[in-house]
């Protein structure tokens, strides 16, 4: 096969030209097959990348969801234990039991009942507190201590069920009376983590 002046192939006889053009047709067919394969390969990798991205997003969402529940774990806060001397009161003993068993909704119900009553008592005491009445002062002091202890247990249970808004509100309330805050540092850390 020779070339002419313009550099194009000069094909001698018909047979040779036919074979030449058949080869050219074959080349085109092969090229089309390659493009088809490449296209389906691209689709595969795009779907693979999409699946990976979706998985990563899902893990991130799960992680975000879990992160609040892990605030307590991250801060290393122990399960609150209502003082043993108060455990003679069945409702308080129940809160301890519910928290230890991981029954946070039950613990919340029990804590809400006690706190509602306790808040009312404290309110009344503050209204009628007589200065110098040692017994009354002791009872007020004891009620405030118990109230603070139960609220801390309540906050713990709220955080564990991801009830952030209520937990924040209760944390702020808890931190109002510094002298009764047995877990002040932990509460402040928790406030920062949730806020």
């Amino acid at each position: 096969m020779a070339s002419n002046d313009s550099g194009k192939k000069v094909v001698g006889d018909v047979d040779e030209r036919i074979v030449e053009r058949l080869k050219e047709r074959g080349r085109k067919l092969s090229q089309m097959k390659i493009w088809d394969k490449k296209k389906s390969g691209n689709f595969f990798y795009r779907y693979l990348a999409l699946a990976v991205a979706a998985s990563v997003a899902m893990f991130m969402m799960v992680d975000l969801w879990r992160s609040n529940g892990n605030v307590i774990e991250r801060l290393g806060i122990d399960v609150p234990a209502v003082e043993s001397y108060r455990s003679a009161v069945p409702e308080l003993a129940n809160i301890n039991m519910f928290l230890n068993d991981g029954k946070f909704y039950d613990a919340i119900d029990a804590a809400e009942d006690i706190l509602e009553h306790s808040d009312w008592i404290i309110e009344q005491m503050e209204m009628f507190l007589i200065e110098g009445d040692e017994e009354m002062e002791y009872q007020y002091h004891a009620e405030k201590m118990m109230n603070s202890e139960i609220r801390w247990a309540y906050i713990y249970a709220l955080v564990m069920i991801e009830a952030e808004k209520t937990a924040l509100k209760e944390l702020k309330k808890y931190l109002q009376d510094e002298q009764f805050c047995a877990h002040r540092e932990e509460a402040e850390a928790m406030l920062d983590a949730l806020d």
Binding site: V10, V11, R17, I18, E20, R21
Partner: peptide, 12 residues
């Protein structure tokens, strides 16, 4: 040459 190729292609 181009015309010949075209004729062969058309026949193919």
């Amino acid at each position: 040459e181009e015309l010949k190729n075209r004729i062969v292609d058309e026949c193919i």
